[in-house]
Simulated scan of single mutants.
Amino acid sequence: MTILVIGREDVRRELDYKSCIELMRSAMIALSRGETLQIPRQIVRMDNGRMFGVMPGAMGGQREFGAKIVSVFPENHARGLQSHQGPVILFEPETGTLTAIVHAGEITAIRTAAASALATDQLARADAEILAILGYGDQAHSHVRAIREVRKLSQIRVWGRDIAKARAFAEEIGAEVGIDCHAFDSVAEAVRDADIICTTTAAQEPILFAKDVAAGTHVNVVGSSFAGPAEIDNALVLRSRYFADHREHVLAQGAEFIRAREAGLIDEGHLLAEIGEVLDGTKAGRGADDEVTIYKSLGHVVQDLASAWHLYQKASEGGWGTRVAF
């Protein structure tokens, strides 16, 4: 028996953002329709913010099944490594044999940003053109690349705790995408007049506050993936039309929503819809140009499986990837 190994460079080359956005569209609609199988992610939390997680699931009529097994080491960015390390593993639908191992870090970087771009396309104003990115890691890079697929950006504004690194990121990503890009010393300066904000940090306490967010802004809240760390304050949650990638998971693990609920500011009804329901046309998205909308992203194995099976099929047809005896 052989298994197909699809490495980081394979994923980067073959999983383009435009295609991944469409993969996420199908995956998120299927998730909201109850056409997928998954359980809440199993996370082992270790010292210094490190985590080890297992995310099993099935989709495609339960034929496309597998799991993501991943470690998350926030300090890896300083080492020149991705924060997410591990594989997405796929199993042959008829026999249950292991059939492929796909680089999870690169899939995570691309599919997370693609899902945010999909939500942005649904929830941001049609004329949105100024993007603010909070953070300068893998997700900051990928969110710029993805968001420009759904809006014609005129300016990118960047903030990070280390201003020198933020400036280096701004110079690098601005040159890559050909868009005017500048770093700012404070979050308030970076988000002033922004139409779209993406929070992609490892912040433990809020860095983005309602008072600094302009009317009509769309916010993708991405950095915190479990109950605990929060990137935005309670007042911003309260002010917003709030949408989730998946209701059950956000109610249990969406730190910002949980904090606002526990403070007595909102109840579960404040979570208006899953993005899949908006995409499917069963729930409304933005209602007016002056509303602040929030998309809370936790990430789900159906996103990883949709991406990995897509790559597996392309590799099988195209004859690339590496076959390994097993």
Rank of each mutant, 00 (worst) to 15 (best):
A113S: 14
G86L: 02
H182G: 12
P93D: 14
A115W: 04
I197N: 12
R151W: 00
P93V: 10
D180Y: 01
E176H: 15
A140T: 06
L98Q: 08
S142T: 13
I133H: 04
L98G: 03
R192K: 10
D138Y: 01
R145I: 04
D121R: 15
A115R: 09
L153M: 08
G174N: 08
A78H: 15
E171K: 15
L131N: 13
A132P: 07
H77I: 08
T120P: 03
I89H: 10
I101D: 01
H143F: 02
A132Q: 09
I130H: 05
A104Q: 01
A168C: 06
I69H: 05
H103M: 05
K165P: 11
L134T: 09
E64V: 09
V70N: 02
G66P: 06
I156D: 06
I163K: 13
L134M: 15
L123N: 05
T99D: 10
W159H: 06
S142L: 02
S116N: 05
F91V: 01
C181D: 14
A194Y: 01
F73D: 13
A194I: 03
A117H: 10
F184A: 00
I163Q: 11
F65R: 11
A166K: 03
A175H: 12
E172C: 12
V144N: 06
Q62E: 15
R161N: 10
D180N: 05
V191C: 09
A67P: 05
L118K: 03
E172N: 15
T199N: 05
I147M: 10
R151Q: 02
A175K: 11
V187I: 13
A188C: 07
A78G: 14
A115F: 05
I69K: 04
R79G: 11
Q82N: 10
V177T: 09
C181V: 12
I133T: 14
R63V: 11
K68R: 15
I163G: 05
R161A: 10
T200Y: 03
A124W: 00
D193T: 01
